[in-house]
Design a protein around this nucleic acid. Structure first.
Lengths: 144, 144
DNA sequence: CTGTCAAATGATAATGATTATCATGATAAT
DNA sequence: ATTATCATGATAATCATTATCATTTGACAG
Protein backbone atom coordinates (compact mmCIF):
# COMPACT_ATOMS: atom_id res chain seq x y z
CA UNK A 1 0.00 0.00 0.00
CA UNK A 2 2.54 2.56 1.15
CA UNK A 3 4.90 1.56 -1.61
CA UNK A 4 2.23 1.95 -4.23
CA UNK A 5 1.33 5.38 -2.93
CA UNK A 6 4.98 6.23 -3.01
CA UNK A 7 5.28 5.22 -6.61
CA UNK A 8 2.22 7.23 -7.56
CA UNK A 9 3.74 10.17 -5.71
CA UNK A 10 6.88 9.87 -7.78
CA UNK A 11 4.82 9.63 -10.92
CA UNK A 12 3.03 12.83 -10.03
CA UNK A 13 6.28 14.61 -9.20
CA UNK A 14 7.80 13.55 -12.49
CA UNK A 15 5.15 15.66 -14.18
CA UNK A 16 5.44 18.39 -11.52
CA UNK A 17 2.19 17.59 -9.80
CA UNK A 18 2.00 17.30 -6.05
CA UNK A 19 0.48 14.59 -3.91
CA UNK A 20 -1.74 16.81 -1.80
CA UNK A 21 -3.59 15.39 1.20
CA UNK A 22 -6.79 15.38 -0.84
CA UNK A 23 -5.15 13.49 -3.67
CA UNK A 24 -3.59 11.03 -1.30
CA UNK A 25 -6.91 10.38 0.42
CA UNK A 26 -8.50 9.79 -2.97
CA UNK A 27 -5.77 7.40 -4.06
CA UNK A 28 -6.09 5.49 -0.80
CA UNK A 29 -9.80 4.99 -1.39
CA UNK A 30 -9.05 3.66 -4.85
CA UNK A 31 -6.43 1.26 -3.51
CA UNK A 32 -8.76 0.04 -0.78
CA UNK A 33 -11.46 -0.68 -3.34
CA UNK A 34 -9.28 -2.07 -6.05
CA UNK A 35 -11.82 -4.70 -7.08
CA UNK A 36 -14.75 -2.32 -7.30
CA UNK A 37 -15.72 0.00 -10.10
CA UNK A 38 -16.48 3.22 -8.33
CA UNK A 39 -18.14 6.24 -9.84
CA UNK A 40 -16.88 9.72 -9.01
CA UNK A 41 -19.77 10.09 -6.57
CA UNK A 42 -18.87 6.76 -4.92
CA UNK A 43 -15.29 7.88 -4.49
CA UNK A 44 -16.44 11.21 -3.13
CA UNK A 45 -18.57 9.63 -0.44
CA UNK A 46 -15.84 7.21 0.58
CA UNK A 47 -13.17 9.90 0.72
CA UNK A 48 -15.41 12.09 2.82
CA UNK A 49 -15.30 9.51 5.59
CA UNK A 50 -11.62 10.19 6.11
CA UNK A 51 -11.43 13.70 4.80
CA UNK A 52 -14.80 15.38 5.27
CA UNK A 53 -13.75 18.81 4.01
CA UNK A 54 -12.98 17.57 0.52
CA UNK A 55 -15.10 18.94 -2.30
CA UNK A 56 -16.66 16.99 -5.13
CA UNK A 57 -14.85 19.06 -7.73
CA UNK A 58 -11.51 18.09 -6.25
CA UNK A 59 -12.41 14.43 -6.52
CA UNK A 60 -13.33 14.90 -10.17
CA UNK A 61 -10.10 16.77 -10.79
CA UNK A 62 -8.04 14.12 -9.06
CA UNK A 63 -9.66 11.31 -10.99
CA UNK A 64 -9.07 13.16 -14.22
CA UNK A 65 -5.43 13.65 -13.29
CA UNK A 66 -4.98 9.99 -12.40
CA UNK A 67 -6.57 9.05 -15.70
CA UNK A 68 -4.07 11.21 -17.57
CA UNK A 69 -1.23 9.53 -15.72
CA UNK A 70 -2.72 6.14 -16.54
CA UNK A 71 -2.93 5.24 -12.88
CA UNK A 72 -6.63 4.60 -13.35
CA UNK A 73 -8.77 3.88 -16.36
CA UNK A 74 -12.06 5.58 -16.93
CA UNK A 75 -14.71 3.15 -18.10
CA UNK A 76 -18.32 3.32 -18.99
CA UNK A 77 -20.69 0.40 -18.79
CA UNK A 78 -23.60 2.10 -20.47
CA UNK A 79 -25.39 3.57 -17.50
CA UNK A 80 -24.74 7.27 -17.67
CA UNK A 81 -21.85 7.17 -15.19
CA UNK A 82 -18.10 7.00 -15.60
CA UNK A 83 -16.30 4.54 -13.39
CA UNK A 84 -12.68 4.54 -12.37
CA UNK A 85 -10.61 1.41 -12.23
CA UNK A 86 -7.04 1.09 -10.98
CA UNK A 87 -4.64 -0.26 -13.54
CA UNK A 88 -2.54 -3.24 -12.49
CA UNK A 89 0.95 -1.94 -11.96
CA UNK A 90 3.05 -2.68 -14.97
CA UNK A 91 0.17 -4.03 -17.01
CA UNK A 92 0.68 -3.39 -20.67
CA UNK A 93 -3.01 -3.28 -21.36
CA UNK A 94 -6.24 -2.60 -19.66
CA UNK A 95 -8.01 -5.60 -18.23
CA UNK A 96 -11.41 -6.86 -19.39
CA UNK A 97 -14.80 -6.94 -17.71
CA UNK A 98 -17.69 -9.31 -17.28
CA UNK A 99 -20.94 -7.47 -16.68
CA UNK A 100 -23.83 -9.60 -15.43
CA UNK A 101 -27.20 -8.76 -16.93
CA UNK A 102 -28.96 -10.37 -13.97
CA UNK A 103 -27.30 -8.95 -10.89
CA UNK A 104 -25.29 -6.10 -12.36
CA UNK A 105 -22.02 -7.37 -10.92
CA UNK A 106 -18.78 -6.53 -12.69
CA UNK A 107 -15.93 -9.02 -12.57
CA UNK A 108 -12.48 -8.54 -13.97
CA UNK A 109 -10.30 -10.60 -16.26
CA UNK A 110 -6.65 -9.76 -15.83
CA UNK A 111 -5.37 -12.12 -18.51
CA UNK A 112 -4.59 -10.56 -21.84
CA UNK A 113 -6.54 -12.95 -24.11
CA UNK A 114 -6.35 -10.53 -27.02
CA UNK A 115 -2.77 -11.10 -28.16
CA UNK A 116 -3.73 -13.01 -31.30
CA UNK A 117 -6.67 -10.80 -32.10
CA UNK A 118 -4.53 -7.70 -31.78
CA UNK A 119 -1.88 -9.06 -34.08
CA UNK A 120 -4.53 -9.73 -36.66
CA UNK A 121 -6.03 -6.27 -36.35
CA UNK A 122 -2.62 -4.60 -36.57
CA UNK A 123 -1.76 -6.34 -39.82
CA UNK A 124 -5.10 -6.71 -41.54
CA UNK A 125 -6.43 -3.25 -40.71
CA UNK A 126 -3.04 -1.54 -40.53
CA UNK A 127 -4.02 -0.07 -37.19
CA UNK A 128 -1.47 0.63 -34.46
CA UNK A 129 -3.14 -0.44 -31.23
CA UNK A 130 -2.42 1.63 -28.14
CA UNK A 131 -5.16 0.38 -25.87
CA UNK A 132 -8.42 -1.50 -25.86
CA UNK A 133 -11.73 -1.92 -24.10
CA UNK A 134 -13.35 -5.33 -23.96
CA UNK A 135 -16.53 -6.02 -22.03
CA UNK A 136 -18.71 -9.09 -22.10
CA UNK A 137 -22.36 -8.88 -21.20
CA UNK A 138 -24.06 -12.04 -20.01
CA UNK A 139 -24.86 -14.21 -17.03
CA UNK A 140 -22.25 -14.54 -14.31
CA UNK A 141 -21.33 -17.80 -12.57
CA UNK A 142 -23.29 -16.84 -9.47
CA UNK A 143 -26.55 -16.22 -11.31
CA UNK A 144 -26.42 -19.35 -13.44
CA UNK B 1 -33.29 0.10 -48.53
CA UNK B 2 -37.04 -0.38 -48.90
CA UNK B 3 -36.71 -4.03 -48.06
CA UNK B 4 -34.77 -3.30 -44.92
CA UNK B 5 -37.35 -0.76 -43.83
CA UNK B 6 -39.98 -3.35 -44.50
CA UNK B 7 -38.24 -5.88 -42.32
CA UNK B 8 -37.87 -3.38 -39.53
CA UNK B 9 -41.55 -2.57 -39.92
CA UNK B 10 -42.41 -6.23 -39.49
CA UNK B 11 -40.16 -6.43 -36.48
CA UNK B 12 -41.97 -3.50 -34.90
CA UNK B 13 -45.37 -4.96 -35.69
CA UNK B 14 -44.41 -8.29 -34.17
CA UNK B 15 -44.11 -6.47 -30.84
CA UNK B 16 -47.20 -4.35 -31.59
CA UNK B 17 -45.30 -1.17 -32.27
CA UNK B 18 -46.10 0.94 -35.30
CA UNK B 19 -43.80 2.37 -37.90
CA UNK B 20 -44.96 5.95 -37.64
CA UNK B 21 -43.73 8.56 -40.14
CA UNK B 22 -41.37 9.90 -37.48
CA UNK B 23 -39.94 6.47 -36.82
CA UNK B 24 -39.58 5.76 -40.50
CA UNK B 25 -37.78 9.04 -41.09
CA UNK B 26 -35.42 8.23 -38.23
CA UNK B 27 -34.72 4.74 -39.54
CA UNK B 28 -34.02 6.16 -43.01
CA UNK B 29 -31.43 8.51 -41.57
CA UNK B 30 -29.76 5.61 -39.82
CA UNK B 31 -29.72 3.53 -43.00
CA UNK B 32 -28.32 6.41 -45.02
CA UNK B 33 -25.51 6.86 -42.51
CA UNK B 34 -24.79 3.25 -41.84
CA UNK B 35 -21.05 3.77 -41.59
CA UNK B 36 -21.24 6.68 -39.22
CA UNK B 37 -21.70 6.66 -35.48
CA UNK B 38 -24.32 9.28 -34.90
CA UNK B 39 -25.33 10.73 -31.58
CA UNK B 40 -28.98 11.36 -30.80
CA UNK B 41 -28.42 15.02 -31.57
CA UNK B 42 -26.80 14.15 -34.90
CA UNK B 43 -29.77 11.99 -35.83
CA UNK B 44 -32.15 14.70 -34.74
CA UNK B 45 -30.57 17.30 -36.98
CA UNK B 46 -30.48 14.96 -39.96
CA UNK B 47 -34.09 13.86 -39.51
CA UNK B 48 -35.19 17.47 -39.26
CA UNK B 49 -34.09 18.05 -42.83
CA UNK B 50 -36.79 15.73 -44.07
CA UNK B 51 -39.24 15.98 -41.24
CA UNK B 52 -38.85 19.40 -39.61
CA UNK B 53 -41.73 19.02 -37.15
CA UNK B 54 -40.12 16.11 -35.35
CA UNK B 55 -39.18 16.64 -31.71
CA UNK B 56 -35.95 15.69 -30.03
CA UNK B 57 -37.78 13.55 -27.50
CA UNK B 58 -39.27 11.45 -30.27
CA UNK B 59 -35.84 10.82 -31.70
CA UNK B 60 -34.60 9.68 -28.30
CA UNK B 61 -37.65 7.47 -27.88
CA UNK B 62 -37.21 5.95 -31.31
CA UNK B 63 -33.54 5.24 -30.76
CA UNK B 64 -34.35 3.63 -27.44
CA UNK B 65 -37.00 1.48 -29.11
CA UNK B 66 -34.64 0.44 -31.88
CA UNK B 67 -32.05 -0.45 -29.28
CA UNK B 68 -34.54 -2.69 -27.50
CA UNK B 69 -35.34 -4.42 -30.77
CA UNK B 70 -31.62 -4.82 -31.41
CA UNK B 71 -31.90 -2.97 -34.69
CA UNK B 72 -29.25 -0.59 -33.45
CA UNK B 73 -26.63 -0.79 -30.76
CA UNK B 74 -25.96 1.99 -28.33
CA UNK B 75 -22.28 2.60 -27.87
CA UNK B 76 -20.16 4.96 -25.92
CA UNK B 77 -16.65 5.93 -26.87
CA UNK B 78 -15.89 7.88 -23.74
CA UNK B 79 -16.97 11.35 -24.72
CA UNK B 80 -20.16 11.98 -22.80
CA UNK B 81 -22.42 11.02 -25.69
CA UNK B 82 -24.19 7.83 -26.68
CA UNK B 83 -23.93 6.83 -30.29
CA UNK B 84 -26.20 4.58 -32.28
CA UNK B 85 -24.92 2.04 -34.70
CA UNK B 86 -27.00 -0.14 -37.03
CA UNK B 87 -26.50 -3.82 -36.51
CA UNK B 88 -25.64 -5.88 -39.56
CA UNK B 89 -28.74 -7.84 -40.43
CA UNK B 90 -28.42 -11.34 -39.10
CA UNK B 91 -25.20 -10.65 -37.25
CA UNK B 92 -24.87 -12.83 -34.19
CA UNK B 93 -22.74 -10.35 -32.38
CA UNK B 94 -22.00 -6.70 -32.35
CA UNK B 95 -19.12 -5.57 -34.50
CA UNK B 96 -15.93 -3.99 -33.20
CA UNK B 97 -14.50 -0.51 -33.48
CA UNK B 98 -11.19 1.14 -34.19
CA UNK B 99 -11.00 4.61 -32.67
CA UNK B 100 -8.13 6.77 -33.89
CA UNK B 101 -6.46 8.86 -31.21
CA UNK B 102 -5.12 11.26 -33.84
CA UNK B 103 -8.09 12.11 -36.03
CA UNK B 104 -10.96 10.74 -33.98
CA UNK B 105 -12.23 8.56 -36.81
CA UNK B 106 -14.15 5.41 -35.98
CA UNK B 107 -13.84 2.41 -38.29
CA UNK B 108 -15.69 -0.85 -38.00
CA UNK B 109 -14.60 -4.45 -37.99
CA UNK B 110 -17.41 -6.75 -39.03
CA UNK B 111 -15.47 -9.98 -38.56
CA UNK B 112 -16.09 -11.84 -35.36
CA UNK B 113 -12.47 -12.35 -34.21
CA UNK B 114 -13.57 -13.22 -30.68
CA UNK B 115 -14.76 -16.78 -31.17
CA UNK B 116 -11.79 -18.38 -29.43
CA UNK B 117 -11.64 -15.78 -26.71
CA UNK B 118 -15.32 -16.21 -25.96
CA UNK B 119 -15.02 -19.96 -25.69
CA UNK B 120 -12.22 -19.50 -23.19
CA UNK B 121 -14.18 -16.99 -21.14
CA UNK B 122 -17.29 -19.17 -21.10
CA UNK B 123 -15.41 -22.16 -19.74
CA UNK B 124 -12.73 -20.61 -17.54
CA UNK B 125 -14.94 -17.97 -15.94
CA UNK B 126 -18.18 -19.91 -16.21
CA UNK B 127 -19.81 -16.87 -17.76
CA UNK B 128 -22.59 -17.14 -20.32
CA UNK B 129 -21.85 -14.49 -22.93
CA UNK B 130 -24.80 -12.70 -24.48
CA UNK B 131 -23.02 -9.81 -26.11
CA UNK B 132 -19.75 -7.94 -26.14
CA UNK B 133 -18.14 -4.59 -26.72
CA UNK B 134 -14.64 -4.41 -28.16
CA UNK B 135 -12.95 -1.17 -29.06
CA UNK B 136 -9.33 -0.58 -29.97
CA UNK B 137 -7.75 2.79 -29.43
CA UNK B 138 -4.72 3.67 -31.52
CA UNK B 139 -3.49 5.14 -34.78
CA UNK B 140 -5.53 4.47 -37.90
CA UNK B 141 -4.05 3.56 -41.27
CA UNK B 142 -4.64 7.08 -42.59
CA UNK B 143 -2.74 8.81 -39.81
CA UNK B 144 0.25 6.49 -39.85
C1' DC C 1 -69.19 7.45 -41.03
C1' DT C 2 -68.41 8.91 -36.11
C1' DG C 3 -67.02 8.26 -31.42
C1' DT C 4 -63.67 5.97 -28.49
C1' DC C 5 -59.36 4.49 -26.74
C1' DA C 6 -54.62 3.53 -26.55
C1' DA C 7 -50.43 4.72 -28.42
C1' DA C 8 -47.37 8.29 -30.11
C1' DT C 9 -45.90 12.88 -30.41
C1' DG C 10 -43.92 17.63 -29.38
C1' DA C 11 -42.84 21.15 -26.21
C1' DT C 12 -40.76 21.82 -22.29
C1' DA C 13 -39.49 21.12 -17.51
C1' DA C 14 -36.68 18.29 -14.59
C1' DT C 15 -32.80 15.55 -13.59
C1' DG C 16 -28.19 14.06 -13.03
C1' DA C 17 -23.39 13.92 -14.19
C1' DT C 18 -19.68 16.62 -15.26
C1' DT C 19 -17.18 21.01 -16.03
C1' DA C 20 -16.21 25.93 -15.43
C1' DT C 21 -15.63 29.83 -12.50
C1' DC C 22 -13.69 32.35 -8.97
C1' DA C 23 -12.37 33.74 -4.52
C1' DT C 24 -9.59 31.76 -0.98
C1' DG C 25 -5.89 28.92 0.99
C1' DA C 26 -1.56 26.35 0.88
C1' DT C 27 3.18 25.87 -0.83
C1' DA C 28 7.70 26.64 -2.55
C1' DA C 29 11.20 29.64 -4.23
C1' DT C 30 13.28 34.00 -4.09
C1' DA D 1 8.61 37.76 4.73
C1' DT D 2 6.74 38.17 -0.19
C1' DT D 3 5.29 36.92 -4.17
C1' DA D 4 3.86 33.66 -7.67
C1' DT D 5 1.83 29.38 -8.61
C1' DC D 6 -0.85 25.68 -7.91
C1' DA D 7 -4.73 23.47 -5.62
C1' DT D 8 -9.00 23.65 -3.34
C1' DG D 9 -14.05 24.20 -2.11
C1' DA D 10 -18.41 26.16 -3.06
C1' DT D 11 -21.35 26.85 -6.38
C1' DA D 12 -23.05 28.13 -10.88
C1' DA D 13 -23.27 26.61 -15.59
C1' DT D 14 -23.58 23.18 -19.10
C1' DC D 15 -24.94 19.29 -21.60
C1' DA D 16 -27.14 14.92 -22.49
C1' DT D 17 -30.95 12.44 -21.30
C1' DT D 18 -35.48 11.49 -19.16
C1' DA D 19 -40.03 12.67 -17.35
C1' DT D 20 -44.31 15.09 -17.75
C1' DC D 21 -48.42 16.32 -19.87
C1' DA D 22 -51.56 18.19 -23.03
C1' DT D 23 -52.55 17.27 -27.79
C1' DT D 24 -52.77 14.46 -31.96
C1' DT D 25 -53.11 10.33 -34.54
C1' DG D 26 -54.78 6.00 -36.16
C1' DA D 27 -57.14 1.60 -35.52
C1' DC D 28 -61.29 -0.24 -34.41
C1' DA D 29 -66.32 -0.84 -32.73
C1' DG D 30 -70.64 0.34 -33.28
Amino acid sequence: MEQRIDRIKKQLHSQSYKLTPQREATVRVLLEHEDDHLSAEDVYMLVKEKYPEIGLATVYRTLELLTELKVVDKINFGDGVSRYDLRQEGAAHFHHHLVCLECGSVDEIQEDLLDDVEKEVETRWNFEIKDHRLTFHGICHRCK
